[in-house]
Deep mutational scan, measured.
Amino acid sequence: RQGFVPAAYVKKLDSGTGKELVLALYDYQEKSPREVTMKKGDILTLLNSTNKDWWKVEVN
């Protein structure tokens, strides 16, 4: 499932696989259909980080 999360809630990881991955630093509950819920410690695939406030991710 793809959607947006606050950029301040995730940290980029060095995956070494060519995929950009991020680590969820905090729990986040989606507040609109365009967002996704994540739990602290989740590893997500980063799809787009051009917006400084909201990053598009895919929940694996």
Rank of each mutant, 00 (worst) to 15 (best):
residue 37 T to F: 05
residue 49 S to E: 13
residue 56 K to H: 10
residue 45 T to A: 10
residue 11 K to C: 15
residue 22 V to Y: 10
residue 26 Y to K: 14
residue 23 L to R: 09
residue 27 D to Q: 03
residue 10 V to I: 07
residue 23 L to C: 09
residue 60 N to Q: 13
residue 28 Y to N: 01
residue 3 G to S: 02
residue 41 G to R: 02
residue 29 Q to M: 12
residue 26 Y to T: 08
residue 15 S to L: 14
residue 38 M to D: 00
residue 38 M to L: 08
residue 60 N to P: 15
residue 58 E to G: 07
residue 55 W to I: 04
residue 54 W to G: 00
residue 9 Y to S: 08
residue 6 P to C: 06
residue 36 V to L: 15
residue 46 L to R: 01
residue 18 G to L: 10
residue 52 K to S: 12
residue 6 P to K: 04
residue 24 A to R: 01
residue 57 V to W: 00
residue 8 A to I: 11
residue 27 D to S: 08
residue 22 V to L: 09
residue 53 D to L: 15
residue 16 G to Y: 12
residue 8 A to P: 08
residue 6 P to M: 04
residue 45 T to W: 13
residue 41 G to Q: 02
residue 40 K to Q: 10
residue 55 W to P: 01
residue 54 W to N: 02
residue 50 T to Q: 12
residue 18 G to H: 11
residue 48 N to Q: 09
residue 2 Q to A: 11
residue 5 V to R: 00
residue 46 L to K: 01
residue 7 A to L: 02
residue 41 G to E: 02
residue 29 Q to S: 11
residue 39 K to M: 09
residue 51 N to M: 09
residue 18 G to E: 14
residue 47 L to N: 02
residue 10 V to F: 06
residue 1 R to K: 11
residue 37 T to W: 04
residue 18 G to T: 11
residue 37 T to S: 15
residue 7 A to F: 03
residue 42 D to S: 07
residue 53 D to M: 15
residue 27 D to W: 04
residue 41 G to N: 06
residue 35 E to K: 05
residue 7 A to V: 06
residue 18 G to S: 11
residue 26 Y to F: 13
residue 60 N to H: 14
residue 58 E to K: 08
residue 23 L to A: 05
residue 25 L to D: 01
residue 19 K to D: 09
residue 14 D to M: 12
residue 37 T to C: 07
residue 17 T to Q: 14
residue 36 V to M: 11
residue 26 Y to G: 05
residue 29 Q to C: 12
residue 4 F to A: 02
residue 2 Q to E: 08
residue 48 N to R: 07
residue 18 G to C: 14
residue 20 E to K: 13
residue 21 L to C: 10
residue 20 E to F: 11
residue 48 N to M: 07
residue 49 S to M: 10
residue 59 V to K: 13
residue 50 T to A: 11
residue 12 K to I: 11
residue 60 N to L: 14
residue 39 K to V: 08
residue 38 M to Y: 01
residue 35 E to R: 05
residue 44 L to G: 05
residue 16 G to H: 15
residue 24 A to P: 00
residue 38 M to P: 00
residue 40 K to T: 07
residue 58 E to D: 04
residue 29 Q to D: 14
residue 40 K to Y: 04
residue 42 D to L: 04
residue 2 Q to H: 08
residue 33 P to N: 10
residue 14 D to Q: 11
residue 47 L to S: 02
residue 49 S to T: 10
residue 26 Y to L: 10
residue 33 P to Q: 08
residue 59 V to S: 13
residue 51 N to G: 09
residue 21 L to E: 08
residue 52 K to Q: 11
residue 44 L to E: 00
residue 50 T to F: 09
residue 57 V to R: 00
residue 59 V to Q: 14
residue 46 L to S: 00
residue 3 G to A: 04
residue 44 L to V: 05
residue 13 L to P: 02
residue 33 P to D: 12
residue 34 R to V: 11
residue 57 V to Y: 01
residue 49 S to G: 10
residue 28 Y to H: 04
residue 4 F to W: 15
residue 23 L to H: 04
residue 54 W to A: 02
residue 40 K to N: 04
residue 14 D to G: 15
residue 22 V to R: 01
residue 22 V to N: 01
residue 16 G to W: 11
residue 43 I to N: 03
residue 45 T to L: 15
residue 58 E to R: 10
residue 50 T to S: 15
residue 24 A to H: 00
residue 3 G to P: 01
residue 43 I to Y: 05
residue 12 K to E: 05
residue 44 L to W: 04
residue 38 M to C: 05
residue 49 S to A: 13
residue 26 Y to D: 07
residue 42 D to A: 07
residue 32 S to M: 07
residue 3 G to N: 01
residue 60 N to G: 14
residue 7 A to G: 04
residue 10 V to Y: 01
residue 33 P to L: 09
residue 28 Y to A: 01
residue 44 L to R: 00
residue 18 G to P: 09
residue 59 V to D: 06
residue 60 N to T: 13
residue 17 T to S: 13
residue 56 K to D: 03
residue 16 G to C: 14
residue 38 M to S: 00
residue 50 T to I: 08
residue 27 D to I: 02
residue 1 R to C: 08
residue 53 D to T: 15
residue 42 D to G: 04
residue 1 R to G: 05
residue 36 V to Y: 05
residue 10 V to C: 14
residue 9 Y to W: 07
residue 12 K to C: 08
residue 59 V to G: 07
residue 7 A to S: 13
residue 16 G to F: 12
residue 12 K to D: 04
residue 57 V to M: 01
residue 1 R to M: 07
residue 59 V to Y: 10
residue 29 Q to T: 15
residue 29 Q to E: 14
residue 60 N to E: 11
residue 54 W to D: 01
residue 36 V to W: 06
residue 6 P to F: 05
residue 56 K to G: 05
residue 19 K to V: 14
residue 11 K to I: 14
residue 21 L to D: 03
residue 42 D to Q: 15
residue 25 L to A: 03
residue 47 L to K: 05
residue 50 T to Y: 09
residue 14 D to T: 14
residue 34 R to H: 13
residue 20 E to Q: 15
residue 26 Y to H: 11
residue 4 F to K: 03
residue 48 N to V: 08
residue 40 K to V: 08
residue 39 K to N: 08
residue 7 A to E: 03
residue 53 D to A: 12
residue 6 P to A: 02
residue 57 V to I: 06
residue 21 L to G: 03
residue 15 S to K: 11
residue 22 V to I: 07
residue 8 A to R: 15
residue 5 V to D: 01
residue 5 V to E: 00
residue 27 D to T: 06
residue 16 G to T: 14
residue 43 I to G: 01
residue 24 A to M: 03
residue 32 S to R: 09
residue 56 K to W: 15
residue 8 A to L: 11
residue 55 W to Y: 07
residue 55 W to K: 01
residue 40 K to M: 08
residue 34 R to Y: 14
residue 34 R to P: 05
residue 55 W to E: 01
residue 9 Y to D: 02
residue 26 Y to Q: 13
residue 47 L to V: 10
residue 6 P to Y: 04
residue 57 V to F: 01
residue 52 K to N: 11
residue 15 S to M: 14
residue 53 D to P: 02
residue 15 S to W: 14
residue 27 D to Y: 05
residue 14 D to K: 12
residue 43 I to M: 06
residue 60 N to S: 13
residue 49 S to W: 10
residue 39 K to S: 09
residue 12 K to F: 07
residue 48 N to C: 11
residue 27 D to E: 05
residue 4 F to N: 04
residue 17 T to M: 13
residue 19 K to C: 12
residue 28 Y to V: 02
residue 2 Q to I: 13
residue 60 N to W: 14
residue 36 V to T: 06
residue 37 T to Y: 04
residue 8 A to V: 10
residue 49 S to I: 07
residue 36 V to F: 13
residue 51 N to K: 06
residue 37 T to M: 05
residue 45 T to D: 05
residue 7 A to I: 03
residue 12 K to A: 07
residue 25 L to P: 00
residue 3 G to H: 02
residue 4 F to P: 00
residue 23 L to Y: 10
residue 52 K to H: 11
residue 55 W to L: 04
residue 56 K to M: 14
residue 30 E to W: 06
residue 15 S to T: 15
residue 36 V to C: 08
residue 24 A to G: 03
residue 1 R to Y: 07
residue 36 V to K: 02
residue 9 Y to E: 01
residue 23 L to I: 15
residue 21 L to R: 11
residue 31 K to F: 06
residue 35 E to C: 07
residue 33 P to T: 09
residue 23 L to N: 02
residue 19 K to S: 10
